[in-house]
């Protein structure tokens, strides 16, 4: 449970809290602390819902059938499916990159792989629902996700375009 990330955060908290105490005095320190504790408490039910949704979503979709749709010569639909697979299937980098390696091995082109990895890094449902929605305002998250939706597909098309012109060849 205790890892580098948690220790980093703890150090950041100590330093920033200490600096606020010194610069603004104990009153402001306690005021800020209590206000943020209250905010976290109000947020927790939403966080819990986000966790359940993110975990259950991975079981709703049939993985094999979806991966087959992103195979070779699947066109723009294939890019969209690859992006969605990257965004929705839960799991860390090890899982997603193996999934992508599998997709490429099954004959899909570089563009589908880029769409899948981009779908994951930009739109991972897990990270968006669990972390981003907890920290950042909901309307910000919504707009960012909507604007980002076409991006992995566009990146895939760009890769195909470059490949046709021979630029992206190894």
């Amino acid at each position: 449970m205790i890892d580098g990330g948690l220790i980093t955060l703890f150090i950041i908290l100590l330093l920033s809290g200490g600096a606020v105490w010194i610069k603004f005095g104990p009153d402001v320190f306690w005021q800020t602390l209590l206000a943020d504790l209250g905010f976290v408490a109000v947020l927790l039910p939403k966080v819990a819902g986000g966790v359940v949704l993110a975990v259950a979503l991975g079981y709703v979709l049939p993985r094999e059938r979806i991966m087959a749709l992103a195979g070779p010569e699947s066109g723009v639909t294939g890019l969209a499916v690859a992006m969605l697979a990257g965004a929705i299937f839960p799991g860390g980098p090890a899982v997603t990159f193996s999934l992508t390696a599998g997709l490429l091995a099954s004959g899909a082109d570089l563009a589908a792989g880029v769409a899948m990895v981009s779908g994951w890094v930009l739109l991972s449902a897990n990270r968006t629902l669990i972390w981003e929605l907890s920290f950042l305002p909901a309307h910000f998250v919504l707009v960012r996700v909507l604007l980002t939706l076409p991006i992995p597909i566009l990146l895939g098309l760009a890769v195909r375009h470059l490949a046709r012109r021979g630029v992206a060849a190894e």
């Binding site: 948690l6 908290l13 603004f24 800020t32 602390l33 920290f135």
Partner: peptide, 18 residues
């Protein structure tokens, strides 16, 4: 998440002041 959320949120509050 719980400890990370808590530490992250409290840090964000302090950092915003600083």
């Amino acid at each position: 998440m719980l400890p990370r959320l808590l530490l992250g949120m409290l840090s964000a509050g302090f950092l915003a002041l600083l």
